[in-house]
Amino acid sequence: MNLSEAIVIIGGCDKKGLLKLPFTECYHPKSGQWTTLSSMPGYTKSEFAATTLKNNIYISGGHINSSDVWMFSTQLNSWIKVAPLSKGRWRHKMAILNGEIYAIGGFDGVKRLSTVDRYNSFTNTWSPVTPMLEAVSSAAVVSCMNKLYVIGGAVEDYGNTDKVQCYDPEADAWTYKTPSPFSQRCINAVELDGLVYVVGGLLSTIFCYNPKTDVWSEVACLPGALESCGVTVCGGKMYILGGRDENGEGTENAFVFDPKTGIVAAEPPLQRCTSYHGCVTILHRT
């Protein structure tokens, strides 16, 4: 069986942001082909968190007070319910650090959350770690250089932050880093070659953060402003898929950013207009 990197788009909202989509679809950039995978369970979800561990996909939350966590087995092409979050979260993010899943921040319908839970897949249990310094929702979260970075996000209904919060698992402690050059929510981040790249928040710029130097820079421009887009790394490049434009409408546009050349190129469009979706990379049979 030949395996190659492929991008999975999970759920999300339609063009107007009204309908929740049940689709789980796999895109192979090399061939340009799409494969339909098993539909997402309980697809009345949006703004859930998604990540991959051991080539399986995990999603959590997805509406106010939802603590459900599902694992998509790539071998079985089926969704399996695993241990729930200790607290319902919405507009939070998940990231992998040292082989464990961290569920970070979010919103519980009343307030933003500073709490952080860590999942061990061997024991199928969640346990709390030290909370963030500041509660945020819809932030960008990424692991890089054995640390977690939480960038920006919403601190109140109409207020965002430019703060960068960094978690060191060895010290089980958070510190502030150099603030980002923007104060946005509905942003996403990926790690590529030891650097963090951030897009979204209705910005048309791709920003780069270097954890070694604690310095921010602008690296490329997108054709238009986007938020709540899918972002993942595949084949050593950053893919920016779907999202909402400045008119608040979902888009099917897809772009790929090559950090070696600094060029943003258009990709074939998604199957449909999609925003607030999960977007991850797995190894999938060709």
Rank of each mutant, 00 (worst) to 15 (best):
E191S: 11
S204A: 09
A189Y: 07
T205N: 04
G262R: 03
R185S: 14
G201N: 03
N247F: 11
I187D: 08
S204Y: 06
G262L: 08
P211F: 11
C229P: 04
A189H: 02
I187A: 04
S228R: 11
F207R: 05
F182Q: 04
Y239L: 03
D245S: 05
A254H: 02
A220H: 11
L226C: 00
V190W: 10
G201W: 05
G200V: 10
K260E: 13
C186K: 13
Y209R: 12
G242H: 12
N210I: 05
C208R: 14
P179D: 06
G236N: 06
S228V: 03
S183H: 06
G230I: 06
Y197G: 02
I187R: 07
E227T: 08
G235H: 00
D245Y: 07
P181T: 01
D193W: 01
L241Y: 03
F255Q: 01
G250D: 04
D214Y: 02
K212V: 08
G243P: 08
Y197V: 04
G250A: 01
Y209D: 12
F207Y: 15
N253P: 00
G230A: 04
S228H: 03
G194I: 04
V198I: 15
G230Q: 02
V219T: 12
Y197C: 02
G262K: 01
E252Q: 08
L192S: 13
G224C: 14
W216G: 13
A189Q: 05
L203E: 09
V231A: 11
I206R: 01
V215C: 02
S183Y: 01
A220W: 08
T205Q: 10
G224M: 14
Y239K: 00
T261R: 09
P211R: 13
K260D: 13
I187L: 12
P181G: 02
V196D: 02
L203C: 11
T251H: 01
C186D: 12
P181I: 02
K237W: 12
I187M: 08
C234Y: 07
V256P: 07
V215T: 10
P211C: 09
I187Y: 06
T251W: 04
L202Q: 06
I206D: 03
N253D: 15
D193M: 08
I187P: 01
